[in-house]
Nucleic acid binder design. Sequence first.
DNA 1: GCCGTTTTCGGCCCGACTGTTTTCAGTCG
Length: 579
Amino acid sequence: MRNGEIAEAFEELASLYELDGAVVYRVVAYRNAAKAIRESGVSVEEMARQGRADELAGVGKTIAEKIGALLDDGSIPAADKLKGRIPSGLIEVTRIPGLGPKRARLLHEQLGIESLDDLRAAAEDGRLEGVQGFGAKAAENVRAALAAGADGSDKPRLLLSKALEVGEALVGALREHPAALRVELAGSARRWADSCKDLDIVCAASDPAALVAAFTELPEIDQVGSSGEAGARAVTHSGLPVDLRIVPAESFGNLLQHFTGSGKHNEALRTDAVKRGLHVSEYGVADDESGESHAFETEEEVYAKVGLAYIEPELRENRGELKAARDGKLPELIRLEDIRGDLHSHTTLSDGRNSMREMAEAARDRGYEYLAITDHSATHGFGDDVPPDELRKQIERVAALNEELDGITLLAGTETNILPEGKLDYEDELLEQLDWVVASVHTSFQMGEQKMTDRMVAAIGHPLVDVIGHPTGRLIGRREPYALNVDRVIEAAAEAGTFLEINANPNRRDLPDNYAKAAVEAGVTIAIDSDSHGVDTLVNMRYGVATARRAWLTKANVANTRPWAEVDKLRKTPRKRYQ
DNA sequence: GCCGTTTTCGGCCCGACTGTTTTCAGTCG
């Protein structure tokens, strides 16, 4: 079973316990365990088989046993038992705004409601008002939510690149307003998560009312829900909810820290602080000893007050960053400026939109020292392939252009398909003449896990494969990863010395952060590549670096923070012509 | 149900808002 599937089972179990009226701490414990399982960079099934599932933070003896039962029998006995009492449709009912587990349970007990359809009927025929705690307003809110299309599914999330497009425009416009003192994007966008469900903007202002008024008039804003001196809630034309908060400048650090999250990070931070007699909220840090509350202008001061080193937003996911901050063991995260070249790009020779020269000049303008031209191989499958003879000519064209270009080195490369049997798309004799070889899967996505993993491991073992491109094949929010044993892929890459890519395309960000972290811990070197198909997407490198930062990576973990000559030496098969 | 530089038992973040209350529970972020 995949980590995601195991996590889902425990999320369901948490909801069932919650509807059954279990103590909230038990429900939270199951939810925390589900999160740890989902985010694990190694196979939890494998850990469980080895009796090590309880090494995950938040998984103890009881949950470890339940994981075992789930793997052995396909279900958790406690969940099966609860399902006898609690209809699964009730979980959807709890996702209607304003309805939670307590009220859903009440509706089940008093009206026999078991599904959204039942809820709709009861809201329409007036039975809802008869339930204790429900008045006319509550019933009306349910009717409105259902009419607005609430269907019991989780809120949709927008890809980070789309959210940032809007968020950066809003922040830029607000910063230009004369009343603005400080304006920062907070929330999941500031943590560079894969996707966002809303935007949070935190401001300090000399004239709050004027700044709020200006915000509601911005061209990106469609509807304004509520607004006042303290901020506004609005929705953009693209349907993204935006929360604007205005705070006093002297407590800007507290608010920014609070609204950057994540919720789990803040919860853990506060629990930790309580042990030191400190109570952290968005307004300040209250000190039991002095009885005073301390407000801070900067986040650095907030973290210092609770005895922690400053934690970068990308790390604030409660994945061990608090302990590392306490022990002074936070990594010095890689920065975008550390990147010295891009090792995966396309031109019009395959499916790119710009010529080799245009790509080279654009890369040089970004300050890169080198750019690998890696057009698709002979069986790419989408047309625009590069047959062997064409690739030979391309090597010559790269050499000729290098003669003309100053300030950047072009590398002759390929993004070769990994064929279903694990072989590559060109003969070794041709691959040997290339400076850089990316190998990726672009066909036969539906293979079983064993075959797909064998296929990948075979490519990793090929002496002339420098890096595996977008190793899991996921498309964020649209396509699950291939059925792949990522543990084995990482192990094979570590053993062979083959690099694994963090593909920086914002739709991919592949390797994902959890796997990239596990890969580096296993000794794998990472390459962060834009996979640009035009000059306009070289900037996507920032999403790859963000994923690397979320994976706790340093400059040293990433190949292309080095000059090209060092990258050549670092890979498993340095090419003779460079020696 | 988990966890341990106060604890192997007794804790387990903080505050705002809403609607229904007659002092607060439930929900949300």
